[in-house]
């Protein structure tokens, strides 16, 4: 069930350059059903900036009723968000959308992420490992300073890093790493910029894959038709990224 709650900020930390890890506590956490869902966060009590910001759930702690978001403080909204401190409250609407179908993976999964698309893959990796599924993580970042959670992913499985400028790991994009890796997995999951998602689909046309898309949003719950994409099903078929997604099977969304 979707809820709106004033959640308690319990932690906020800059974990890489302009990348913040924000943990909040509250009842809404119990509603989360799958990794890859997102929340819609109101960054100010005023009407400037006006719209909520969609941020993925990066980690869930059901026992403490807490969840973590990891985001890049870039524009006005996310910069304000990065000023929140423990003890502050945060207006959260969520959980929203449908996450990654964990049950679709059989033995071994590739988790492929780029930049701010990496965070939801962390909770996904945790849940897959809990089910005994082996995970391999292929993560792309701008540069060494932007890399986050490398150690945490390593604890869960093989982890390969690419940076655009080559300052850490392989130079280039995640696809450069994919070309070098065996195709001995059954399912892949990916989140990141649209061109990356396209490239990942091209790399594995024969595999079962699930991709998480980004679109500009208004309502975040399916009412305003801001986040619509066409699909490959028919000329007139469409999906709403916010409420039908953000995760879709590979080969469906025309982004």
């Amino acid at each position: 069930m979707i809820r709106q709650e004033r959640m308690q900020v319990v932690g906020q930390k800059e974990i890489a350059r302009h990348i913040f890890e924000l943990t909040v506590q509250g009842e809404l956490t119990a509603e989360m059903t799958a990794p890859g869902q997102f929340v819609h966060v109101r960054v100010a009590d005023s009407f400037e900036p006006l719209l909520r910001r969609p941020i993925s759930v990066a980690a869930i702690d059901p026992v403490l009723q807490q969840f973590t978001m990891i985001y890049r403080a870039e524009g006005r909204g996310t910069s304000l968000l990065s000023e929140k401190k423990p003890g502050d409250t945060l207006d959260v609407l969520g959980p929203l959308g449908n996450g990654f179908p964990v049950e679709q993976a059989e033995k071994k999964a590739y988790l492929i992420g780029g930049g701010i698309g990496v965070p939801p893959l962390y909770e996904l990796a945790k849940q897959l490992n809990e089910k005994g599924i082996q995970t391999v993580h292929i993560l792309g970042f701008e540069s060494k300073q932007a890399v986050f959670y490398e150690e945490k992913f390593k604890e869960l499985g093989d982890t390969h890093i690419a940076t655009v400028d080559g300052s850490h790991g392989t130079q280039g994009f995640v696809t450069h790493i994919l070309n070098e890796l065996p195709k001995d997995f059954d399912t892949y999951f990916s989140c990141g910029p649209t061109p990356m998602l396209e490239a990942v689909q091209w790399a594995y046309p024969e595999k079962r894959g699930f991709l998480s898309y980004e679109q500009r949003m208004g309502c975040g719950i399916g009412a305003c038709f801001a986040c619509v994409c066409r699909t490959t099903k028919s000329e007139t078929d469409y999906i709403k990224v916010c409420s039908d997604g953000p995760v879709f099977p590979a080969g469906v969304v025309i982004a």
Partner: peptide, 24 residues
């Protein structure tokens, strides 16, 4: 039925927003 305009269809502005949904 109308499929509306291409995305991005919304943009935030000072205390407001622009939309061009295109009557989807």
């Amino acid at each position: 039925m109308r499929l509306g305009n291409p995305t991005p269809r919304v943009a935030e502005t000072a205390a407001g927003m622009l939309n061009a949904i295109g009557l989807q």
